[in-house]
């Protein structure tokens, strides 16, 4: 059980770092999709000894949404907006990776100091969840394209999901479904917004949306 969880955690770290170094938006979407699939399978690994139907259902739903539906929706938005690359991000790719590694070190340190009562999870989970949240936030603030910010939001959400699945354990099914539905609607609405931004401005560079101040 813990071997499975730990390999999933390693995959999460790798996908995070890859995302920080990629410029092609299409590849970014794929990396986040892979991360979503890994996360969707995480509840199966965490409850490998007693697989209740609700866990299988939840895992199936998460994999379907995060691994296939979201990427499909985002790729569509990408086609409509007609953008290929994240051109000149606010923080360059090499520097992003360096910051990412530093962030991982920091998460390991914080994770070792923070104790969650009664958590039976492998020790790697907490720092990796924190790291994923940090990477999500960093992508949101350091990239110009609206689409990349949506990816950042998804990565942030993934980090919280990892935290919840392994550290909190029993979350009622209703809440899990509600959260999943919310994320789905979030991506849907953000996709619509990207469509309108690309039509209105001929680009989806968020840093040029700066007419409203004061």
């Amino acid at each position: 059980m813990s071997l499975l969880i730990e390999s999933a955690m390693v995959l999460l770290v790798l996908t995070n770092l890859t995302l920080l170094g990629l410029s092609r938006l299409r590849s970014c979407i794929r990396v986040v999709a892979v991360q979503g699939i890994v996360l969707g399978l995480l509840p199966l690994a965490a409850h490998a000894d007693d697989l209740a139907p609700r866990i299988i259902l939840l895992a199936g739903g998460t994999v379907a949404l995060k691994g296939f539906v979201f990427p499909w929706m985002l790729l569509r938005a990408l086609r409509v907006a007609n953008v290929r690359h994240e051109v000149e991000p606010i923080v360059g790719y090499t520097l992003s990776i360096v910051i990412g590694i530093a962030g991982f070190g920091m998460s390991l340190w914080v994770g070792s100091r923070l104790t969650i009562p009664g958590a039976a999870a492998p020790p790697l989970v907490l720092p990796v969840a924190l790291f994923t949240i940090l990477v999500g936030l960093f992508v949101i603030v350091s990239r110009r394209k609206a689409l990349t910010q949506v990816l950042g939001y998804l990565v942030l959400e993934n980090g919280m999901y990892a935290f919840g699945i392994v550290l909190v354990g029993e979350i009622p099914m209703l809440v899990e479904l509600g959260v999943l539905l919310d994320v789905f609607v979030a991506v849907l609405v953000m996709g619509i917004a990207i469509y309108h931004i690309s039509r209105e401005y001929d680009h989806i560079d968020v840093d040029e949306l700066d007419a409203l101040r004061g």
């Binding site: 949101i140 939001y153 979030a186 953000m190 917004a193 309108h196 209105e200 968020v206 949306l209 700066d210």
Partner: peptide
């Protein structure tokens, strides 16, 4: 449907979601 309201919507969506 104005550019300004689109900008406001995007900021609202992203800042509040995060």
């Amino acid at each position: 449907r104005t550019p300004a309201s689109l900008e406001a919507m995007w900021k609202y969506l992203l800042i509040c979601s995060v």
